[in-house]
Simulated assay, not measured.
Amino acid sequence: MSAATEGGATASLADPVVTIEDFSVDYLGAMTAHAVRNINLTLGRGEILGLAGESGCGKSTLAYGITRLLRPPALITSGRASFHPREGGTVDLSTLRGKQLRAFRWDKISMVFQGAMNSLNPVINIQAQLEDIFITHRPRMSRRDRVRTSGDLLERVGVERSRLKSFPHELSGGMRQRVMIAMAMALGPQVMIMDEPTTALDVVVQREILDEVTRLRAELGFAVLFITHDLPLLLEISDRIAVMKAGEIVELGAARNLYTAPRNDYTKRLLASFPSLTGERGDFIRTGVADIRLTETDQEKV
């Protein structure tokens, strides 16, 4: 949450890679649920944008809507999401159909799904699952190049090349999550959406995964939309954070500003809800320094 990071976030908005305008999604039924309501959001090129909020607030629905992965009874009722490639121009994602949409998804925008640790096919080894990406999207690539590139991908995320022949059950949870990240970056996408990528991992492995994501972003230059309910985690890695409640963005700003001077009452409650690491309420950031602002907020309630 350095000043340099905030400056980088501001600069990246001048070069957006994804823009979301007045985006709404409903789940139709006897009682229609307005899951996402009139979202306006910009993801800058090379930026890590955190999307925080409680379970059921619409975070994953928004991600699935952007990538056109929603299924009935979900329905996009308004707005649009646009992709701005490095090469120039604008792609309205709502206009993509069939093979064009299938080719776009993993090549330009990839996704690490919620529960991705268990998304690998249990009866196919890692090499075959990585190669399948290239067979589908790079059909002219030779088998030798597919194997070499698959091994390179594993090494890039900190997994030994020898693990190509392993099956998912032979890998730890953290290694499986790294494999999923390798798959998501296989085609060099410009945007990676990560939906709760560290859920069910212990804190040590979480730290390793976050370090890898930060390093890879710096090395490869892709933008990240990082979705989680874990606001302290987002405060560590994000350039900006959007806080979502009941389908709406209630606050958006630089990570440091959101932590030190939150404007919305819901953001303040969310910040105050995390347990302390040192015994002081609100002291959840891994600095060992209590947050006086949050302590004063608690005293006002007494």
Results as ranks from 00 to 15, higher is better:
5 T>S: 15
9 A>F: 01
16 P>R: 10
17 V>G: 11
20 I>G: 08
21 E>G: 07
22 D>W: 07
29 G>C: 13
30 A>E: 15
34 H>Q: 12
36 V>G: 07
44 G>R: 04
44 G>M: 04
49 L>Q: 02
49 L>D: 03
54 E>L: 10
55 S>V: 03
57 C>N: 04
58 G>H: 07
68 R>H: 08
68 R>P: 06
71 R>C: 11
72 P>I: 02
75 L>K: 15
82 S>L: 11
84 H>V: 09
88 G>M: 05
88 G>Y: 11
89 G>R: 12
90 T>R: 14
92 D>F: 08
93 L>D: 04
99 K>T: 14
100 Q>S: 12
103 A>L: 12
103 A>M: 11
105 R>E: 12
105 R>W: 08
112 V>P: 02
112 V>C: 05
113 F>N: 01
113 F>H: 05
113 F>E: 00
116 A>F: 10
117 M>G: 02
118 N>H: 14
122 P>E: 13
130 L>H: 09
131 E>T: 10
133 I>V: 15
135 I>S: 08
136 T>K: 04
137 H>L: 04
138 R>T: 14
139 P>H: 10
139 P>Q: 07
140 R>A: 13
142 S>K: 05
149 T>W: 14
152 D>V: 04
153 L>Y: 00
155 E>A: 13
159 V>I: 15
161 R>G: 09
162 S>I: 14
163 R>G: 08
165 K>D: 15
170 E>T: 07
171 L>G: 12
172 S>F: 04
172 S>I: 01
172 S>M: 02
173 G>P: 03
175 M>H: 06
175 M>I: 00
179 V>A: 01
180 M>W: 00
181 I>A: 00
181 I>E: 00
182 A>V: 01
184 A>F: 03
184 A>T: 00
186 A>V: 08
189 P>L: 05
190 Q>G: 11
191 V>E: 05
201 L>P: 05
202 D>F: 12
213 V>S: 01
214 T>G: 00
219 E>C: 00
220 L>K: 01
221 G>S: 06
221 G>F: 08
222 F>Y: 14
224 V>L: 00
230 D>E: 12
232 P>W: 06
237 I>N: 01
237 I>A: 02
238 S>N: 03
241 I>G: 02
241 I>H: 01
242 A>S: 14
247 G>L: 12
247 G>R: 03
249 I>K: 11
250 V>Q: 02
255 A>H: 00
258 L>C: 06
270 L>F: 05
270 L>K: 01
279 G>S: 13
280 E>D: 13
282 G>P: 08
287 T>H: 06
288 G>I: 13
289 V>N: 13
291 D>I: 09
296 E>I: 10
302 V>A: 15
